[in-house]
């Protein structure tokens, strides 16, 4: 077999390659974000002349101050926070109870509901815009944040449900049975014993849904027409029309908008992997 020296060499080569590939992935993932940042701090007058330099010769915060003080951006940002936050909140509640039922009950309608949820993932969503508009308009839910929240919640519930189910599958049934014997109804046992134990799973689902709602453009564009109910992606597009294409400001707005989504995601991505693992173990 191999000599110790040989195997040490092999180990070095292996880990060398390993770290090299990791570095490549990190660079690939981060470079576009870096470029976003770079454009946002480049002064307008040298944006095109120094377009391909890795770092501009001068930097400025002007784009950020403009976005924060002169534009509607803070307003859009608030709208987005409200919409994404509420969507994440309601989706989690609904997905938690549904995922719990999928995990714990065997019932006739289950397969139909699961099939329905899977099929909803196949829709070309574009096609739903007009009908949804049709349904929401008479209820006064178009051009309103509430309408957006309802639509986003519906779109996110299926995946969030499957995610939550995998978390519940990882929690032994004995626990709520013990609670039921101790004096809880099933729902109380779910709320007081099972839910607290799935907090990481709930965090993962919250973060996932928040990010998804934060990015959504199509429905935000189509269901909302007034400035006051626009979310930030729509607002970002308005930079294009209103100020000519002011890329510096747009990228500055983009960087600012990235912050909450990324912060949220960084916090929860670990639980996302854990949660999926917990479900996978169960089969």
């Amino acid at each position: 077999m191999s000599t110790p020296g040989n195997s040490a060499l092999r180990k070095t080569v292996y880990w060398g390659t390993h770290y090299l590939m990791i570095a490549a992935f990190v660079v690939f993932a981060l470079f576009p974000l870096y470029w976003l940042l770079k454009v946002s701090v480049t002064p307008n007058d040298i944006l095109y002349t120094e377009g391909v330099r890795m770092w501009p010769s001068r930097t400025t915060w002007d784009n950020y101050t403009f976005v924060m003080t002169q534009s509607n951006f803070p307003h859009y940002f608030m709208n987005s926070v409200i919409v994404s936050g509420s969507t994440a909140f309601f989706t989690c509640i609904i997905a938690a109870v549904t995922g719990y039922a999928f995990s714990r009950f065997r019932f006739r309608g289950k397969i139909i509901i699961v099939a329905l949820m899977l099929i909803t993932q196949m829709f070309p969503l574009v096609m739903l815009i007009a009908p949804i508009f049709r349904i929401l308009a008479p209820l006064g839910l178009t051009d309103s944040l509430t309408g957006l929240i309802i639509v986003y919640t519906a779109f996110n519930v299926p995946f969030a449900t499957f995610l939550m189910q995998s978390f519940f599958d990882g929690i032994p049934k004995d626990l709520e049975e013990a609670a039921m014997i101790d004096g809880n109804t099933r729902f109380e046992a779910f709320r007081r014993i099972i839910l607290p134990l799935t907090l990481p799973g709930i965090a993962a689902t919250l973060g996932f849904v928040f990010t998804a709602a934060w990015s959504e453009l199509l429905f935000a564009l189509m269901l909302v027409s007034s400035e006051s109910a626009s979310t930030f992606p729509v607002g970002l597009l308005s930079f294009v029309s209103k100020f000519g294409v002011d890329f510096g400001q747009m990228m500055a707005a983009g960087v600012l908008a990235l912050i909450p989504a990324c912060a949220f995601f960084l916090l929860i991505q670990r639980y996302l992997v854990q949660g999926l693992t917990a479900g996978a173990v169960k089969g």
């Binding site: 993932a29 576009p32 990015s215 992606p233 908008a257 995601f265 960084l266």
Partner: peptide, 18 residues
């Protein structure tokens, strides 16, 4: 792990523009 998963959190139209 946190860094390489980050692109998923970037709003798609923003990454498109970028």
């Amino acid at each position: 792990q946190a860094l390489v998963f980050l692109p998923w959190a970037v709003p798609t139209f923003l990454s498109g523009l970028n």
